[in-house]
């Protein structure tokens, strides 16, 4: 198939960016979206032009490195699919595709489609962990965890930290990301000792990083490549209220 791409080009942080058009011919339906961009970049390189900068690593939908907004949707048209797992069979000959970076003030553009997501790491550093030093642990089976809780924890923990939730949210809120980490740790008995402080500190960190407030649009859930449920947000809200009252 033949495609016309409109790609966001921006030389460096703070620079003026713009959409630039590129035609790509002979795209196979078996290619992944990123392989299609590879083909474009190889051509640009051969012509001595600056290739499009985009991030990726595992190309298996698990590292959360890739991410771009495709025709207005984070990670593109397929539900529960990262852009590295999106295949060209989801597109048609003659399609025009607009490709932009995540847009959020807490995720400044570094170059083209690359943004700086270190704000996520800083939220985790404020409490997204269980404080246990190496060597302190009792036997793994000493703390039985009901299967439903373990499964719930796993549902939340499957977040890959890609930032699609932020990109999808009209307020650029990081609520789903934060709620998923809290939902994971609070579904397990091990996570209970630090519950209050964790919720409080992580929510504060989220505000400090410049993410917006959550006003329940739930675009995040629809965009999440791992299908993380917005119910975790409701849980976080309840816990935050309780903590603030204490």
């Amino acid at each position: 198939m033949n495609l016309r791409l409109h790609i966001w080009r921006q030389k460096e942080p703070g620079a003026q960016g713009m959409l630039k058009a590129y035609d790509v011919a002979d795209v196979s339906e078996h290619m992944s979206f990123l392989e299609m961009l590879d083909v474009l970049n190889e051509r640009l390189l051969e012509n001595g032009e600056d290739p499009v900068a985009f991030e990726h690593d595992c190309r298996e939908g698990i590292c959360g490195t890739c991410g771009m907004v495709i025709n207005g949707r984070p990670h593109g048209p397929e539900p529960k699919t990262t852009v590295c797992q999106l295949h060209m069979r989801s597109f048609h000959d003659g399609d025009s595709i607009t490709i932009e970076p995540w847009r959020a003030s807490a995720f400044p553009v570094v170059k083209d489609l690359v943004v700086d997501r270190s704000a996520f790491d800083r939220i985790v550093q404020k409490g997204g962990y269980i404080s246990v030093n190496t060597g302190n642990a009792p036997d793994g089976n000493a703390i039985p965890v009901p299967k439903v809780n373990a499964d719930l924890a796993m549902d939340a923990a499957s977040c890959i930290g890609c930032g699609a939730c932020v990109a999808a949210c009209p307020n650029a809120s990081a609520m789903l990301f934060t709620a998923a980490k809290i939902g994971h740790l609070h579904a397990l008995p091990q996570g209970h000792a630090e519950k209050g402080a964790r919720v409080y500190n992580m929510v504060l960190a989220m505000d400090d990083e410049g993410f917006g407030a959550c006003t329940n649009h739930l675009e995040c859930e629809a965009a999440c490549p791992k299908g993380i449920s917005s119910l975790f947000i409701a849980k976080l809200n309840t816990e935050f209220v309780i903590t603030s009252l204490l």
Binding site: V132, A137, N141, K147
Partner: peptide, 23 residues
């Protein structure tokens, strides 16, 4: 090897469990 599992469980790694709650 056994210590690793203990450590990871304590950190909250959500390993698969049987219905009885054990690993």
């Amino acid at each position: 090897s056994g210590n690793i599992i203990d450590q990871c469980v304590a950190q909250g790694v959500p390993f698969a469990r049987e219905y009885g709650g054990y690993l």
